[in-house]
Design a protein around this nucleic acid. Structure first.
Length: 205
DNA sequence: CAATAGATCATCT
DNA sequence: GATGATCTATTGC
């Protein structure tokens, strides 16, 4: 794929439909790998995600039930759940499962594909392209995703998720989730094996 | 390299 | 009032 200063040529892609998200979060998480997140002129390939299992998962925000913050999680699938954390950062999730259940997928890292100059402006701390979106707080910054987009419909709204037509399934590595204290040993983090744009070190096992 | 402190505030107890 | 699905800069080996 070619990258230019302000415009990009991506191979043909198709936007994901509602049914993609209307499944159990582990399934959605694994299938998100290799898909493309698009916002404005920026785009990135999803290379790392985590599954959150809703009310049965002590580490999930949905664990404490429906609140002002979590109502999007309990809503219909295919919407963005974006929350503010550590007084400074915002994290992007895709809402999975039917309305009433609160499974979600945390997007943890992207391989930048388009709008890289804009990403660099938004993230002056990043020295290398590999640092632009290699973490949940970094990728929202790089792509200009804020709480303004909480509840945004991924199927029809300004935030898009697309699949490369005919792309082979990537090889997936599995680890425990990062940065949580509860259920810290559950194997719910999924990455593209060997990819250089993941958070932390690449995993090739 | 690895370990750690500090930034900073919405949310829930 | 404490905590948190994080990141960066700095310190020390």
């Amino acid at each position: 794929m070619r990258i230019a200063a302000s415009t990009v040529t991506l191979p043909k892609t198709t936007r994901l439909k509602r049914e993609f998200y209307n499944r159990e979060p582990i399934r959605v998480a694994r299938e998100c790998l290799g898909k493309v997140l698009v916002h404005g002129e920026t785009a990135g390939r999803i290379v790392e995600v985590e599954a959150y299992l809703g009310q049965d998962d002590r580490a999930a925000h949905a664990w404490s039930g429906v609140t002002k913050r979590t109502e999007v999680l309990f809503g219909p699938p295919g919407h963005a759940y974006i929350y503010f954390i550590y007084g400074m950062y915002e994290c992007l999730n895709f809402v999975a499962e039917p309305e009433g259940r609160a499974g979600a997928v945390l997007i943890r890292a992207l391989e930048p594909l388009a709008g890289i100059e804009q990403m660099r402006k938004r993230r002056p701390a990043a020295k290398r392209v590999e640092d632009l979106a290699s973490g949940p707080g970094k990728l929202t910054q790089a792509m200009g995703i804020t709480r303004r987009l909480n509840g945004c419909d991924l199927v029809t709204g300004e935030l898009e998720v697309r699949a490369f037509n005919g792309e082979a399934k990537p090889e997936i590595a599995v680890t425990p989730r990062i940065g949580i204290t509860h259920c810290a040993d559950w194997p719910l983090r999924f990455l593209i094996r060997g990819n250089k744009f993941v958070s932390g070190k690449p995993i090739h096992i």
